[in-house]
């Protein structure tokens, strides 16, 4: 067993709904070390958020059921840990921020209250000390005039500032891992860049491991060390950021890269991946991507491709990975 800070190992999750069983996570494995940034990339419904919620232990169960696998933090399996012990890890060891900070923050409490809440409740810090710490945290995430804004409510902040409040709140107990679930999706493009820069800077300064969940390839290029591409509950490609941008090893990654709008392709139609993500209640046979794959062969409908090790920590779940990489 290796000694990564956080390790998701062969995770399987089903949603048991009235319409049937949806296998949303089908053997996901990834790991994170201190101070590094892992980007988890994928379309809506690919399972990237569900995996993160399983790590945090905030997955709605039912309907969710974890049928197999382990999630290890500092070598301990979170899934078999007593709930009370696990709760103490939340926020303190592993923290998470969400997409829409307006709905993710409680509308009726001031941001100072919410940022300092875990310090007061879980660490037993006195109120005035906790409030001072809240101001420091707001300074850390570069909220101007932090002291004056302590008593403001979430709706009195702009979108970008609200996301900064969310980040400040997540950092209150100095977590070693921060999971950011589409932190910039609800924001303007210029603000997106500021938030990404902030996250990268904080990760460096605080030496945290950062899991960045996104569907936006453009966002990850500058900040991620490694990228895990998810499709239909599987990691289809995993590689360091330079390799993947230089030469993807899976047709799905290729499709994603081709669909990024570029200045030099002005006037040409945008390239898209044809078709829709699969219905997980009735997934396609073989490789889940084969109905949309431009390279699909007969064999792709029959065989679920295993994760091929391509060397240098790089994997691809495509039967033709070698051909794509070297062809």
């Amino acid at each position: 067993m290796s000694n990564h800070l956080l390790e998701v190992d062969n995770l399987h999750i089903e949603f048991r709904t009235r319409d049937g069983v949806a296998k949303v996570i089908n053997g996901v494995s990834y790991h994170l070390d201190p101070g590094e940034t892992l980007a988890v990339l994928g379309e809506s419904g690919s399972g990237k958020s569900v995996t993160a919620q399983a790590i945090m232990g905030i997955l709605d169960m039912p309907p969710g059921v974890i049928t197999n696998g382990e999630i290890r933090y500092e070598g301990r399996n979170l899934l078999t840990m007593p709930e009370e012990e696990r709760r103490r890890l939340r926020g303190k060891e592993i923290a998470m921020i969400f997409q829409d900070a307006l709905s993710a923050l409680n509308p009726v409490y001031s941001v100072g209250f919410q940022i300092s809440e875990t310090l007061r409740r879980n660490e037993g810090v006195a109120k005035d000390v906790a409030m001072k710490r809240a101001v420091e945290l707001m300074d850390l995430v570069k909220i101007p005039a932090a002291k004056d804004r302590l008593k403001n409510y979430p709706h009195e902040f702009s979108g970008g500032m609200r996301q900064r409040v969310m980040i400040a709140m997540s950092l209150a107990q100095n977590p070693k891992v921060l999971i950011a679930d589409e932190p910039t999706t609800a924001l303007d493009v210029t603000v997106q860049a500021q938030i990404m820069d902030l996250l990268a800077e904080l990760r460096r300064e605080l030496d945290m491991g950062l899991i960045l969940i996104t569907h936006d390839l453009g966002v990850v290029a500058d900040v991620a060390d490694r990228i895990a591409v998810m499709y239909a509950g599987r990691i289809v490609e995993h590689a360091d950021v330079h390799s993947i941008y230089a030469k993807p090893a899976h047709p799905y990654t290729q499709g994603l890269l081709d669909s990024i709008p570029r200045l030099d392709s002005k006037g040409h139609e945008l390239s898209t991946i044809k078709g829709l993500p699969p219905n997980l209640l009735r997934p396609p046979s073989g490789c889940a991507f084969h109905p949309r794959c431009p390279m699909a062969q007969q064999v792709c409908q029959e065989k679920v491709p295993p994760s091929l090790n391509l060397g240098g920590g790089r994997t691809s779940a495509c039967l033709f990975a070698e051909e794509i990489l070297h062809g």
Partner: peptide
Amino acid sequence: RADYVRTAKAKGLAKRR
């Protein structure tokens, strides 16, 4: 079912609180 409840869980607050 609100989002802020999910946030509160993720912060590690006790269920009762």
